[in-house]
Write a protein that binds this DNA or RNA. Structure first.
Length: 779
DNA sequence: GAGCACTGC
């Protein structure tokens, strides 16, 4: 006890300022001295007797049950009282005292709460009454991995506290800061808090930080947890609560040096689990069969089926619908797909009611939702009684050897299986059909899904850590330390980009790169772009690279869609086509109909424009010039040449060279790759840079633009140190080029670039017609 | 001649 009071020294009460008496407590706080503590409140104020860090559950509850809202000084509404009654029934409410005891006597508390426990809405409020953050000129933050959750929980809590959203309670997510000077409780995305930490490494604006959904183990949550361990050493006044849903809380507890753990039961209904007696050879077929079986034989109640991706889902939906419609002894069925790239209005259909029976008293109608992992955590569908879990999902994996991230259909974890089955018991008892054996569940499934940090390229993570002032990455206390090779790859990348020097220290350039909310390569490109006279264009291109594909291609209108896309094609590469699309979109007046007519995704373009506005703000903040080259500059083509050089300034490590065989080989790694068929690059380009390496049945490079070997040597001499190159044609070409330069032809070489550009474009046309003729002959 | 699980700044 005494230890704590030393840490959290009581604040001496200043004399109340009578001129502030007409203001609400939180308004009195802003900038005023009275604001510093609650003792500046009138004696009959609901919080008058509260001592920060020493309040009791009874005090908090009494204040909540009073007539006057202590944070606004307004009478509580009737709606508030109704909501309050509901809150009192949440499982977490019984643990208010226990929680306060723990948080008052410990700096870090781990809290395990199952779904429906109320932890996300109530715990932050418990803390508000104990911390009274506004009286200290501080705030309480509660992080969420997803934006939607941050927004909707904030909305809910604002209602529960009877305040206007964005005032005392608010949220802060990218593109939308819904907080004010008065905000004392702020929900936010974990990425947002991380970004804040990069500029305020002690997070001094907060008196308490709650990391919610920590079991999700997002990259940001993992970094934040490591950061919390650092910060609490330096800020004894900071309280930290780590909230998680799964049972592996012991791991969190251990990580935070045996912090106390509190467990709150959930409020869900029992779910009966069924396993298959034998392993299934074809999970898709088994899943469809099971869905139909349930539909024919089980009582009313909707079905949720988990599959791995869009194509599989659409396929399954068709088959289930077709077969169910053939069943004479079953009720009507409504089959609905759900995945993130589905347009929002199609996504909303999952909330539609199941169809009624064909005749009164007939077999029940049923809704079947066929979904990706989206329905496992991000979205909740009420009314689900039956869950079918084939046991697979697509997961990101990173291969540091070839530096490639890819998606792989993999078995899920036990935690994931549990989460899935839980979806059947939201509103009443349910059943979960696992399409694998109980033995497989027990012995083959891993406990929890590997955290993202073990499955990702860590370029951005390492840069962020450096920006946070963590110099010694090898000894940084990761909850799960990434493979040394993955860290090495990241350090190597950042060193070549000159974000880190040879000793691994962050350069001023690296510090600036970390400010941009994009991959390091793209950040480098943005920062270099003014030197190439084209920062306006690079901002547009980078924005489009940071949103999903803009080009729509409905299966039944492929030809039209491809024709529409061809209008934007630039012969030298896809990055320039993106620029064309952006420009056309802006010229259309950001017209939705124009997008529809041209097979462009309006929402995507709109969000790209949002991103661009943000990037522009960062560019200005970094004092980078916003410039364009004159379009009709002589020699011809220099406008696009400037842009391509700027692209190379960021992408010089993602280069492929075309061998005489016609194959492309990636530079240094010597992976055989092909241009993605969607590429608009229409001629044999010897050197290309690419945005993305897509690993499917074949190796593809996607979003590709032609560059010149000369540029690469100029831009990244360190990377193009040929001693480090494996033997290949590209290496020999570069060697010859270097020899020629040594012989003194360097500058003339560069002047001739543009001439060659023109001659190249001529030969390109003849290439094309050559090819066409050959095609015809073959037929 | 194609296949984008899901988030986030």
């Amino acid at each position: 006890m005494s230890d704590r009071s030393q840490k959290r020294a009581k604040i001496e009460a200043p004399k109340e300022n009578p001129y502030l008496a007409h203001l609400s407590p939180s308004e009195r706080l802003v900038g005023g001295t009275a604001a510093k503590n609650p003792y500046g409140l009138a004696a009959d104020h609901p919080l008058a007797n509260f001592v920060i860090g020493e309040t009791t559950a009874e005090q908090g509850e009494a204040a909540e049950e009073g007539d006057i809202n202590p944070f606004t000084d307004k009478p509580f509404s009737d709606r508030y009282k109704k909501i309050l009654a509901g809150r009192r029934k949440l499982p977490v409410n019984k643990h208010r005292k226990e929680f306060l005891d723990l948080i008052q006597n410990n700096q870090v508390v781990i809290l395990v709460g199952e779904t429906g426990s109320g932890k996300t809405t109530q715990i932050p409020q418990f803390m508000v009454f104990d911390e009274l953050p506004a009286f200290k000129g501080k705030k309480i933050a509660c992080t969420q991995p997803r934006r939607l959750a941050a927004m909707s929980v904030a909305q809910r809590v604002a209602e529960e506290m009877d305040v206007v959203m964005g005032q005392e309670v608010g949220y802060n997510i990218r593109f939308e800061d819904c907080t004010s000077q008065k905000t004392m409780l702020q929900y936010m995305t974990d990425g947002m808090l991380l970004r804040e930490a990069m500029n305020d490494p002690l997070l001094s604006r907060y008196s308490a930080i709650i990391l919610d959904e920590a079991h999700d183990r997002t990259l940001s949550t993992d970094i934040l947890m490591g950061l919390m361990k650092e910060i609490i050493k330096k800020r004894s006044d900071l309280k930290v609560v780590v909230m998680s849903a799964t049972l592996d809380a012991g791991k969190f507890q251990k990580y935070f040096d045996d912090a106390p753990l509190m467990s709150v039961p959930g409020r869900t209904f029992p779910v009966e689990i069924y396993y298959t007696p034998e392993p299934e050879s074809d999970y898709l077929e088994a899943a469809i069969f099971t869905a139909l079986q349930i539909h024919r034989t089980e009582d009313a109640g909707d079905i949720l089926l988990f599959l791995t991706g869009e194509e599989e889902i659409e396929d399954a939906c068709r088959k289930i619908k077709a077969e169910a419609d053939q069943m004479p002894d079953a009720g009507p069925i409504k089959v609905l797909p759900l995945y993130s790239t589905l347009p929002p209005q199609a996504q909303k259909r999952i909330y539609e009611e199941a169809p009624p029976p064909r005749t009164s008293g007939g077999r029940p109608g049923r809704k079947v939702v066929v979904s990706t992992n989206l329905a496992e955590t991000s979205l909740t569908i009420d009314g689900i009684v039956y869950v079918i879990d084939p046991g697979f999902s697509k997961q990101k994996v990173y291969n540091p050897r070839i530096r490639v991230e890819s998606l792989l259909v993999s078995p899920i974890s036990k935690a994931s299986a549990q989460q899935r089955s839980g979806r059947a018991g939201r509103t009443r008892p349910g059943k979960c059909f696992r399409l694998y054996t109980e033995n497989a569940f027990m012995k083959e499934l891993i406990e929890t899904t590997y955290p993202e940090i073990l499955r990702s390229n860590l370029g951005t993570v390492v840069l962020q850590l450096k920006k946070l002032g963590i110099d010694d990455l090898v000894h940084f206390d990761f909850m799960d330390p990434p493979a040394p090779e993955t860290l090495m790859r990241a350090l190597e990348l950042l060193n070549y980009l000159e974000a880190l020097d040879d000793d691994g220290n962050m350069t001023p350039l690296g510090s600036m790169m970390a400010d941009f909310p994009v991959d390091p390569q793209l950040a480098k490109m943005l920062i270099a772009s003014p030197q190439y006279g084209c920062s306006n264009e690079i901002m547009s291109i980078v924005s489009l690279l940071n949103v999903p594909l803009v080009f729509m291609r409905p299966p039944d209108q492929r030809k039209m869609a491809d024709e529409a896309k061809a209008q934007f094609s630039h012969p030298d590469g896809d990055h320039l086509s993106l620029l064309n699309v952006y420009h056309a979109y802006k010229t259309s007046g950001e017209d939705q109909k124009w997008c529809y007519d041209n097979f462009c995704n309006y929402r995507t373009l709109k969000s790209a424009d949002n991103v661009r506005t943000q990037l522009k703000r960062y560019m200005e903040r970094c004092d980078l010039d916003l410039v364009s080259l004159p379009f009709d500059e002589r020699p011809k083509g220099s406008y696009y040449t400037g842009i391509r050089k700027a692209l190379a300034a960021g992408y010089f490590m993602q280069v492929a060279h075309q061998e005489r065989s016609g194959n492309y080989l990636t530079v240094k790694d010597n992976q055989v790759v092909r241009l993605h068929p969607s590429s608009c690059l229409d001629h044999n380009a010897e050197w290309v840079i690419y945005n993305e390496f897509v690993l499917t049945n074949q190796n593809y490079i996607r979003t590709v633009t032609e560059v010149k070997a000369e540029w690469l040597l100029d831009i990244a001499p360190n990377y193009f140190d040929l001693d480090s190159f494996p033997n290949c044609e590209g290496k020999r070409v570069l060697e010859k080029l270097i020899q020629r330069r040594k012989a003194g032809g360097g500058d003339r070489d560069r002047e001739r670039d543009y001439d060659r550009d023109e001659s190249r474009s001529k030969s390109r046309k003849s290439d094309r017609s050559d090819k066409d003729r050959k095609e015809k002959r073959r037929r």
